[in-house]
């Protein structure tokens, strides 16, 4: 006999139930979670069940189908919105020192933050562009599946508890100014200068179902693919490839890789360490 102590917080969720949930959402609302990576998706679902004291996935499906307001909150909870200003400072240093000098040779250029979440990366990029004198040249789109986080991103306001982390990250990008130059602190919040993002178009876009909508010189899609299974990753890589000009650049998260995906041969590594790739074939 196997002795066991069942933790009362342990909620069992079977893969089959996750499939039923995703199918119900797709049918009712058109959001497609069917090809999300199952290990992390399952953790998110368990978190939602606990948060709302719902006892089973079956009951969750009922609530989602009956209550569109609840579903809106569900989308916010289920999509991952942990990011920071200048996450991976070494990445931003390479963008500053190696990539932007190349883009600066183009008369103007387009940047897409794909799945931008609450916008920390958008602010980070805007600060880089300002400091490198390229802000005026850039046309920027920032998209996410979740309209609630887009609203937050447009407000450019973050909790003060992140201040030390933000400052430390920024200081490791070879900055040309001080972070204080771009924001002010009031009421326990960091309010960035909204002028920084006045040329940014925020737009709802679901990488899992929507098509490409513009052509870009540089796409940032960092730590997004990790939440998708390989089938969906292939779809999204194709979408990003179609959205890039020939000679355009794609940035992934530090531990994401293009290597095994179908269109890998259409990209060349620009900086393998920081996961920046260049589109070399149509």
């Amino acid at each position: 006999m196997i002795s066991s102590s069942i933790n009362e917080n342990d909620i069992e969720v079977e893969l089959e139930e996750l499939n039923q949930l995703s199918q119900a959402i797709l049918t009712k609302y058109g959001y497609d979670f069917t090809n999300y990576a199952q290990s992390s998706f399952k953790r998110r679902i368990i978190m939602v069940l606990k948060k709302n004291s719902i006892k089973s996935v079956g009951l969750l499906i009922q609530k989602i189908v009956q209550d569109p307001k609840f579903f809106e909150q569900f989308v916010t909870d289920i999509t991952v919105n942990t990011t920071e200003l200048f996450r991976d400072p070494s990445f931003f240093r390479v963008v500053r020192e190696e990539l932007l000098p190349i883009l600066s040779n183009r008369p103007e250029f387009n940047i897409w933050h794909a799945a931008c979440s609450t916008g920390e990366e958008v602010i980070s990029m805007a600060i880089l562009l300002k400091e490198e004198g390229l802000w005026e040249k850039a046309k920027i789109y920032a998209t996410d599946i979740n309209t609630a986080v887009l609203k937050k991103a447009a407000e450019a306001r973050y909790p003060l508890r992140n201040w030390e982390l933000f400052k430390q990250n920024y200081s490791n990008t070879n900055p040309k100014g001080k972070l204080e130059d771009y924001c002010e602190i009031k009421d326990n919040e960091i309010q960035f200068d909204k002028d920084l993002i006045k040329n940014v178009r925020f737009k709802q876009h679901d990488l899992a179902v929507d098509q490409h909508f513009f052509k870009f010189d540089f796409i940032l899609c960092r730590n997004v693919m990790i939440y998708f299974n390989q089938k969906l990753q292939n779809r999204v890589f194709e979408l990003l490839h179609n959205s890039l000009f020939l000679g355009g650049y794609l940035a992934l998260g530090a531990k994401e890789s293009l290597i095994w995906c179908k269109i890998a041969d259409k990209f060349a590594a620009f900086n393998e360490n920081e996961k920046i790739y260049k589109k070399i074939k149509l």
């Binding site: 990576a37 199952q38 290990s39 992390s40 953790r43 998110r44 991952v80 942990t82 990011t83 730590n223 990790i226 939440y227 299974n229 390989q230 998260g253 530090a254 531990k255 994401e256």
Partner: peptide, 21 residues
């Protein structure tokens, strides 16, 4: 497990990473 990521077993064949809380 790499720094600043959670490491998960996605299936018996592959890993998955996440940047959740």
């Amino acid at each position: 497990a790499p720094s600043n990521y959670h490491l998960l077993i996605e299936s018996k064949e592959i890993f998955a990473l996440s940047t959740t809380e």
